[in-house]
Amino acid sequence: MKVAVVTGASSGIGQSAAVQLAKRGVGVILTYSSNREGAKETVAQIEQLDGTAVALSLDIGDTAGFPAFGEAVAGALAGAFGRESFDYLVNNAGFAGMAMIEDTVEQQFDRLTTGLFKGPFFLTQTLLPLLADGGAIVNLTSNSTLAQVTAPGYSVYAALKGAMAVLTRYMAKEFSVRGIRVNSVAPGATRTRFADDAFAKNPEIIPELARTFALGRIGEPDDIGMVIAMLLSEEGRWITGQDIEVSGGQNL
């Protein structure tokens, strides 16, 4: 059985990616931060598919905890899957933050930098010895890095997601000696708990936002999760070093 590590899989895109991978027969080690109940729900969905899943706690903003997390992954691999390595990594965990450039404070800047760039960078480094040769990685970026989707207030968030897109290309180059493919997926606005559950709290913004999409609606988690699963699977075997926008033609 192939095994994937999916970070931030207690809801939204991460949860969808974990379930979509399970539908393809992949075992899942998923992580959560504060949403333990959501992680249990993801595990339950996978078990309903006769799959195997293990939920582990991870704070993507606490790099000091990564060595212990690596040990926990090794333990889960041995205990639940009889493996010493895993095959796929999805760097999805992160958080949003919004402020105009003139109002951004250094503490907020540093928090976003750690959660959106430093964390995924060093988590990948930590898990790399456990990632099997011939495996694959998908990083989550954002179409906010694109000129046609520039929105005031997201300068730091978008810049860091842009950094992840560049990092993806360098990972693809460096890890290719082990046959490991690395791509990133750039979602458009998607119905998740993003930005403090903004869509659930402010449903009135959805119709106007939907009009900016060529396909006439905002994204759903499965729109992204299925692409992630495809890129990790055999269908994506000749794709590496790419940042793929999945946005339904936002601002096309």
Score class of each variant (00 low, 15 high):
Ala4Phe: 00
Gly27Glu: 03
Gly97Met: 04
Gln107Met: 10
Leu127Asp: 05
Leu231Gly: 02
Ile137Trp: 05
Leu21Arg: 11
Ile46Glu: 13
Ala72Gly: 00
Gln48Gly: 15
Val105Tyr: 12
Gly162Pro: 07
Leu56Gln: 01
Ala195His: 08
Val3Cys: 14
Ala4Val: 02
Gly27Trp: 02
Gln48His: 12
Gln108Phe: 15
Leu127Glu: 05
Gly97His: 04
Phe122Tyr: 11
Arg211Met: 12
Ala78Lys: 15
Asn91Phe: 01
Gln107Val: 14
Thr141Met: 03
Thr52Gly: 07
Tyr170Val: 12
Lys40Arg: 15
Met230Ile: 03
Gly216Phe: 07
Met98Phe: 14
Gly38Lys: 10
Ile60Gln: 00
Ala165His: 08
Ala198Asp: 09
Leu130Pro: 06
Ala72Trp: 01
Val54Tyr: 03
Gln45Leu: 15
Thr114Gly: 04
Thr141Pro: 00
Trp238Pro: 01
Ile180Asp: 08
Pro203Glu: 05
Ala195Tyr: 09
Ser57Gln: 15
Arg111Met: 09
Ile137Arg: 01
Ala68His: 00
Thr63Glu: 04
Thr126Lys: 00
Thr104Trp: 09
Phe117Arg: 04
Pro221Lys: 13
Tyr32Lys: 01
Gln107Ile: 08
Val138Cys: 07
Ala229Lys: 12
Ala200Thr: 14
Thr240Phe: 02
Leu123Val: 07
Thr63His: 01
Ile244Glu: 09
Arg36Ser: 11
Arg211Gln: 15
Ile29Gly: 00
Lys118Arg: 15
Ala159His: 05
Met226Gln: 15
Val6Arg: 01
Gln107Gly: 13
Val54His: 07
Ile218Ala: 08
Asp196Met: 11
Tyr32Ile: 07
Phe66His: 05
Leu215Trp: 05
Tyr32Asp: 10
Ser16Glu: 13
Lys40Glu: 15
Ala210Glu: 09
Leu215Thr: 05
Val227Asn: 03
Val28Ser: 06
Ile206Met: 10
Thr192Ile: 11
Tyr170Arg: 13
Arg83Leu: 00
Gly188Ala: 12
Ile244Tyr: 06
Ala172Ile: 10
Glu174Phe: 02
Ile137Asp: 07
Gly12Cys: 07
Ile239Met: 15
Phe199Leu: 12
Arg178Cys: 06
Gly115Met: 07
Val177Pro: 00
Gln108Leu: 14
Leu131Val: 09
Leu56Met: 02
Val182Asn: 12
Ala4Thr: 03
Thr42Asp: 13
Ile228Gly: 08
Gln107Arg: 13
Ile101Ser: 13
Gly241Val: 11
